[in-house]
Each structure stands twice: as structure tokens, then as C-alpha cells.
Amino acid sequence: MNAPDRNPRRAFIAAAGAGVAGLGFTAIAPGLHLMAVASEANAAARPAGTAASPAVRWGLLIDATKCAPGCTKCIDACHTENGVNEKLPDARQASQWIRKIELVDRRNGKKTELPMMCQHCAKPPCVDVCPTGASMKRADGIVLVDRHTCIGCRYCMMACPYKARSLVHVPLTEQNPEVPRGQGCVESCTLCVHRVDKGQIPACVESCPEGAMIFGDLNDPSSAIAKRIASVPTTQVRSDLRLNQAVRYQGI
């Protein structure tokens, strides 16, 4: 019900590869790479009854140079997958688990676009400030909100350096059965934890027609994401805060 149709994406990659020469070639190679990552994650599916392992640290690598201007496929895929679809009269009150940021370098006018979401910090300020411990980090590094104990105080929203969190401002009824979310609780990107636990990759990564996102285990030196990080310069946003995020960017 929720996964976007995959065929148009493949068609897009093929068209991009065939049509737009330079850009197309850079897009198709990571596209193939993406398939490899997907199967790798599938192989790592955790058996039922076992807990998330601290040996694993799930992460994302986003190549901003490949992020196509105006494209919102990852946002649409995320919000479809997670049932984030409520329309509010004041858009500032609606939840956004992931958003597209357009950057213009003040020094030279260079334009960049990239998707921004919960950065899944190793030392998350939201977890530090939460009075009830509802804001939590799983053993494998995924930062989540336990909505059973979230009281909706919004202190985590004040503390997050990335503006990654939203408060659900209205009663909800059409949640995805696998993604519970509700009024009065704070929420953010879960790194598609319900998919990752099944051995799938996050919806945003799967949806990216440019193959600009890689998902995988940062702790496994043989994983595609770890290899890429070891070979090309990547950055963590606001690295001055020393929060050691699991989401890294390339090309900013």
C-alpha cells in the first residue's frame, strides 16, 4: 500500500542514463550501487527475537552533488511510507520528517540541494534533555521517540540543532499500522526502523532516482557506506558540536 511503484524510478534512471549524457552517467552508476546496497541490507536481516546489536551502527551517506534540484522523491517516499500526510491550515504546524534544503554559498553563490532529517547523533541532545527518557537511542544508533512515554513538552525540539523534530498538532486516524504516531507527541525520522529490522533499506534511499543516498552499517568496514566514507571526503553537519551524527554528506 505504501511503497512507491518501483518501475517509474528504474525508467527514470534508464532515461537519465541514455538521455542526459554527463549527469546521466554519474546517476546510473550510483543507481547500480544502490541495488548492491539493497541486497547487502537484505542479507543482514535480523532474526525474530534478537535485539538490535551495538556492534552495528546504521548510517546514511548523502551525496549532495547528485541531489537533483527541485526533486522531492525522497520526501514523498518517506511521508508515504510513514503515513505523514495530514494537511493543516498552517503549514508550519504540519510534521516534516525529511525536507529539502536549498543552500546558496554566501561567498560564491554556489547552489546545493540536499535532504535534511534526523541525523541520528551518537550523542543526541534530544536524548539528553528529554525529561522522561522517551527520546532514546537504540543500540544500533537509531534515535527514536518512545511515544508511550512522550509527554509532548517539546524540549527536544528546542535542543535539536537540525530542526529535525515535529510535534503532531492534530488527532490522527490514518496511520500506517507499522508506524504508530499520534497527537501531542514529538516525532522525527526513524531511519525507517520498521523496514531496517526486516532487512530493507529506508524508503528515502530506495526512492532516490539519482542514487544519491547510501544506507548501511558504518561499523562494518566492508559495507558500501563505510568504504565510500573511507575513500571520499564527507562531512557531518555542524560537526563543531561534536555530536557524531550517523548521517553524513558528500559535496557540501
Partner: peptide
């Protein structure tokens, strides 16, 4: 079950709300 699933990431337990539903 909810605490084990959410906090520890243990999936596929018999007592699951979705299974009840």
C-alpha cells in the same frame, strides 16, 4: 512487548498489537 520492540528492537514476538488487530 512494546518496550522490547521499541527500545531493544526485538521483532516477531507473539504478543504484538498488530497481530491482535
Amino acid at each position: 512487548q512494546r518496550d522490547r520492540t521499541l527500545r531493544q528492537g526485538i521483532r516477531g514476538e507473539p504478543a504484538s498489537l498488530n497481530a491482535c488487530i
